[in-house]
Nucleic acid binder design. Structure first.
Lengths: 358, 358
DNA sequence: GTGAAAGCGCTAACAA
DNA sequence: TTGTTAGCGCTTTCAC
């Protein structure tokens, strides 16, 4: 493997018998430099394959043009969608993205944050793990003047820039949709009390019931610990064995909703005829199910784009005295109606339906 | 937002009336430095929140401890799994990961590569887009001494370090499995001729047939252009309308296989009873299908880990005269048998099955 | 229009 | 045991 030393401004200067300063100015099209020199320099730079040394640039500017992102788990569909959005916006603004995965452990999250800062990122994008209850290290960083934007899973009790889905309205429109389809006894598979998105989704569900004068039945709210398909499966079976049965499920996420669908299949209960189901997240898998799963889409790309844009704005206006205050951007989610909740329209068997996606 | 200038070695040196050199040595536990000074320095560093300036370190060492990764599309399950593996291994070896997405366009891929290098990565991890036919820019980089490892979608006609799945054996064991289950007329939904993984998978299929003395029927091989569920759906319908019908499908990926399952449902053909189906990739969705989808798992985490390890090895032994030659690591995939191909065992209705995953 | 020199923060060879 | 000096590659102020 050849180890050709990279060309530097010095190399060019020596070959042309001028100083590095002149070369530097020529490369950046400084008006003082004669066209002749500029041409010479640029030609030589080209032929020698000159590329500026980023390390020197970073040191000089005390800026790297890199932002760091910390995610609980990359494989989650929602996370990787957000990541895509972040990268898009960052590249547009000439920033690169460095990535870490916390695996939902607060310690890793903290280590990741410091590792990214030590690697030289100009700012941090953070989606908190569900298990992070103390955000003091992040407030320390903020106080040091490090720009941080929280996204998706954002801290409640902590003043900072944030970008997140409106979980409340997402849950509200999903529940309202079930009501409009004629379902009356709507159960809710709820997330863990501690989990960041569970509470607003629960409130959205409750408020939609209230708006439409439906009584909220405590027995129809089932708390899931891990929000897996298995829990959804179990929950659905338990709830349907009660004397008063629910006729539909609004689930805190698509995994549990998929579990509900499996339970319905096993119990020979028709969906959406007898029971309606709506999830939350718009997993790819939902579109493939039979019946396909209605859900709430969180516009991950938008969340990512916005979070990156806010962060980079903070980075570039750090010294600005009238620097904008921390702001919380709320992205509105969108209801995706598929077969699992469409009671009102007959289901047309066939390809179009079988493969319907969005 | 406060803009506290960060503490440097100089600050510490001045406060302690010693030189930066001494401070530097004290911080790195140089044996020559007296314990007293070390204690003083470290204490002050601690209280002043000293963190070494990475830009200066990078400039000095001409190394950043960052690697870059280029993926066609992050949202693809397989890609994000690999990414996770890369990050795991990189962090273990004290490297950070910078990420780009090519969107499967060769131009973006090239831009990404240069952008990552300009940002200062020590080496590159690349999964080629299906549309990349000329890899000259990568060979230029290689010739400049930049360590590159290709993974997943690797170049054929280009000598470099590579890590990839054994597509051939994956296809072989999948097909053989169908044969062992008693299927005789095995169709293959094949990827596009140009696509990187299609050919070895096709060969694996053909060779498995041959090994078991089954005649390969040209009419049973269907070439998909985009390998979507829709194509899988169409293909299955077309093939099943022929006079000689296939009794099973080995599909180039899980998307097409999911399409086949949908077609079977619509045509009221029982799976695996009448027709068996096996996919490739082990998408999450496959486990949720009814029947759940048999598939080939590509051990994405392993691919990622290995690719990162090889790259970092190249980076750290760049100057090594007996530097290892480029090597191609092949990761063996694993067959995941679920319901869609298990003809031999009766399907037990119920929860365990409905939710079976791996 | 171009050169000289300083400095970004750090390390390491050489001196003392 | 500690200080001095040079240098990583680049930009920029100040001279000329």
């Amino acid at each position: 493997m050849p180890v050709n030393k990279k060309t530097t401004l010095k190399d060019i200067a020596e070959k042309l018998n001028i100083t590095v300063a002149t070369v530097s100015r020529a490369m950046s099209n400084h008006p003082d430099i004669s066209q002749r020199i500029k041409d010479q320099v640029k030609l030589l730079a080209e032929t020698l394959n000159y590329r500026p040394n980023s390390f020197a640039l970073h040191l000089r500017k005390q800026r790297s043009g890199m932002i760091g992102i910390i995610l609980p788990k990359i494989i989650h569909y929602h996370s990787s969608t957000i990541l895509s959005g972040v990268i898009l916006a960052a590249h547009d603004l000439k920033y690169q993205v460095m990535i870490c995965e916390s695996g939902s452990t607060p310690d890793e999250e903290k280590n990741n944050a410091w590792a990214l800062l030590n690697a030289g990122v100009d700012g941090l994008l953070v989606s908190l793990s569900n298990n992070t209850f103390s955000e003091t290290h992040f407030s320390d960083m903020q106080n040091e003047g490090i720009p941080i934007v929280f996204f998706d899973k954002v801290p409640n009790s902590f003043i900072a820039s944030k970008v997140s889905t409106n979980d409340y309205t997402g849950a509200f429109i999903a529940t309202e949709h079930l009501i409009e389809q004629g379902y009356k006894n709507i159960a809710h598979l709820k997330g863990q009390i501690g989990a960041r998105n569970s509470e607003p989704r629960f409130r959205g569900y409750m408020d939609a019931l209230q708006k439409h004068h439906l009584e909220a039945n405590q027995a129809f709210v089932y708390e899931c610990l891990y929000c897996t398909e298995e829990e959804g499966f179990d929950a659905a079976q338990k709830l349907l064995k009660k004397r008063v049965r629910p006729d539909s499920f609004f689930c805190v996420n698509d995994e549990t909703a998929i579990g509900v669908l499996a339970a319905m299949r096993q119990m020979n209960i028709s969906v959406p005829g007898e029971v309606g189901v709506v999830g939350f997240c718009n997993l790819k898998a939902g579109a493939y199910m039979n019946p396909s799963l209605s859900t709430v889409d969180q516009a991950g790309i938008e969340i990512g784009k916005k979070a990156a844009a806010v962060l980079i704005d903070m980075i570039e206006h750090k010294a600005d005295p009238n620097c904008p205050d921390y702001k919380h951007t709320i992205i509105e989610p969108q209801l995706i109606i598929r077969e699992s909740s469409r009671k009102q329209q007959p289901i047309i068997a066939g390809k179009r339906k079988a493969l319907q996606k969005q």
